[in-house]
């Protein structure tokens, strides 16, 4: 059980290099944050892992299984799940239906056509438990579109966790969430299952320093430095980068 391993990952669009020799280990239970300025290649990196983009070179393995040959949905089945930078949900369906959809795909019954979708009793209990865990129970029959943005983010997280992933990539989980609600997101991240490997791509430093146990700083598609939150906080290069100081070399 070695978790997610990335070795020498490269990607460029024409002359623009967006990922350059990236190495990363994400063992079960890790809470790693990926930070960096706009355009550093954070979302590109997430897209390379989830299969939306194909890398130019490098290896991606999950517990020894090579992920490169798998497409997006096959990688989800293998255990890599993500939330989007901009909430992507089934907006016209209810919260419960959103979770049910993820669950029925996980259980491989997305093509069953005769039984009612809500007639799997155990599955419904599981959805109830998940809704309760994310404090979404009161709004389970509301349309997602009618929820506040912070709650939609929670729905997205709850739904993604229904997939029972081994590796979870959170792409800017707090983006667009009003600060009054951001504790909801932090609480939810802190309550994630202990053995899950989590990669958080985030701009909000308060959130990063609260939940991450290790931090990777990405600049121009390459890893600038990585270490514990304390190391990063003390790193002069990173401070320059974030405080707008002039960087050298």
């Amino acid at each position: 059980m070695s978790g997610l391993k990335v070795r020498g990952l490269e990607k460029s669009f024409g002359g623009l290099t967006v990922a350059q020799d990236i190495h990363l280990d994400l063992p079960p239970g890790s809470r790693t944050a990926l930070i960096g300025p706009n355009g550093a290649g954070k979302t590109t990196f997430s897209n390379l892992i989830t299969g939306i983009l194909t890398p130019g070179a490098g290896e991606i393995t999950l517990d020894g299984q090579d992920l490169r040959a798998l497409n997006e949905s096959q990688r989800v089945k293998a255990g890599v799940a993500k939330t989007f930078q901009i909430t992507t949900l089934f907006r016209d369906l209810t919260v419960r239906q959103n979770l049910r959809l993820a669950q029925q795909e996980r259980d491989g019954r997305g093509r069953a056509w005769f039984r009612r979708a809500d007639s799997w009793a155990e599955a419904e209990d599981e959805i109830d438990a998940q809704l309760a865990a994310f404090r979404l129970k009161d709004m389970s029959d509301k349309r997602v579109d009618d929820l506040a943005y912070g709650q939609q983010r929670l729905v997205e997280m709850a739904m993604t966790l229904m997939l029972k992933p081994r590796v979870l990539i959170l792409d800017e989980p707090a983006a667009g969430v009003p600060s009054s609600d951001s504790h909801l997101i932090t609480d939810a991240i802190e309550a994630l299952p202990e053995d899950l490997a989590v990669l958080i791509i985030e701009h909000d430093m308060k959130l990063v320093f609260r939940v991450a146990r290790s931090i990777i700083v990405l600049v121009n598609g390459a890893i600038l430095t990585q270490g514990t939150p304390d190391d990063i906080a003390a790193n002069q290069q990173v401070r320059d980068l974030y405080l707008g100081g002039r960087h050298h070399g």
Partner: peptide
């Protein structure tokens, strides 16, 4: 009518609403 209320019907509505999300929950879009 059976189909509409079954998992398949729900997944078709899902495809309608957001193919990206369907792929992200592992459905072969």
């Amino acid at each position: 009518k059976r189909l509409a209320n079954a998992p398949l019907g729900l997944s078709l509505k899902g495809l309608h609403e957001s193919p990206e999300r369907m792929a992200a929950i592992g459905a072969p879009v």
